[in-house]
Structures are given as C-alpha cells and as structure tokens.
C-alpha cells in the first residue's frame, strides 16, 4: 500500500475477503464496513450504531472478530476479512445458520449477520461453550427483537450439532 499523506488521496487496499483476493480504492477515513458494503457490494454486514456498541457490523479480521465500523478500510490491507457472505458452504447453510432458523433466533434480521459471525468465531475457539460463556461472548452484539434467549439456544444447538462425530461411511 502506498503511504500518502495528502488528505484526499485514495489508498489501494489489497486483502483477502472470504477466501478470495480483493482489491479496492478506499478513502483514508472510510471504514471497513463502508468498503465492504459500498466498494465490494457485500451488504450482508449491517450498519447499526456506527460507534462500536451494537455489533451488527461484526466481521473477522485475521480470525478475530471486530466491529468493522471501527476499522479503517486501509487497515485491512494485507489481511484476511471474513464476512457473513463467506459463512455458508455451497448449496447449504452453516450449522449456526440452520440453528438460527430452527430456533427462530431472529425477527427483523439486522443483527443476525453480526451474531452469526461472532458465534462462529466462538465455536471455532471453544466448541462447547456453556450458556454463560455464550452470553458473555455475544455481549458486544445487540438484538432489540428476540430477547437473546433464542439466540443463545441456537448457538447451543449448533454447538452440539457441530460436536457430533461425522457420520460413518462418508466419502
């Protein structure tokens, strides 16, 4: 990335988004959230508060969940970004997405991509978290519809699905 100090010069950012190489021009003050939605058309990541309180814009940056509204797009240069768009396998759903549907863990849906990305990061680190741990991990994600219980149950359900041994006789 070129280091430009002139305020209006755009910066070329090259990063990995959901496993694919991406390159875009970012204004220096542009957030990663804006770049994802506007430059890359990845509108699954939502803007809620734009100040780091609600977690609707949660993405993983080099494997750690962050509020993408509080990351400058320029900071993503050379990094890996994982968004909700990269979560489902081809022709299916991630177990967390399936569990959110089955537990009715969403109503308006604005917070859902952030919850899913955050919960996925939790289960990757800790495959069988208890309820307290799930609630603590998801404290940075706000939901104004569900009252959280269904979301917590969905994460527990996905956790037990994902912890089951793979069926025998598979390819």
């Amino acid at each position: 990335m070129t280091q430009q100090e002139a305020p209006v010069r755009k910066i070329t950012v090259a990063c990995d988004v959901n496993g694919y190489p991406a390159e875009f021009l970012a204004a220096p003050h542009q957030s990663l959230l804006e770049a994802l939605r506007e430059a890359m058309g990845l509108t699954g990541t939502k803007e809620g508060c734009n100040d780091g309180n609600c977690g609707a814009c949660t993405v993983a940056l080099d494997g750690r969940i962050v509020d993408s509204c509080l990351v400058l797009a320029a900071e993503a240069d050379g990094k890996r970004v994982d968004t909700i768009e990269g979560m489902a396998p081809p022709n299916g759903l991630h177990p967390l997405q399936q569990a959110f549907l089955e537990e009715a863990a969403l109503q308006c849906g604005i917070c859902t991509p952030g919850f899913l990305v955050a919960a996925k990061a939790l289960l990757e680190r800790e495959p069988e978290p208890d309820e307290h741990r799930i609630r603590l991990w998801l404290a940075g994600n706000l939901c104004r519809c569900t009252g959280y219980d269904k979301i917590v149950r969905a994460v527990q359900r996905a956790s037990s699905e994902m912890s089951k041994p793979a069926p025998a006789g598979g390819a």
Partner: peptide, 9 residues
C-alpha cells in the same frame, strides 16, 4: 473493556 469485538482492537 467493551465486548470481544472491542477487545480484539
């Protein structure tokens, strides 16, 4: 300090 997302940064 903050939630997990904030603690990442």
């Amino acid at each position: 300090i903050g939630g997990i997302q904030i603690q990442s940064r």
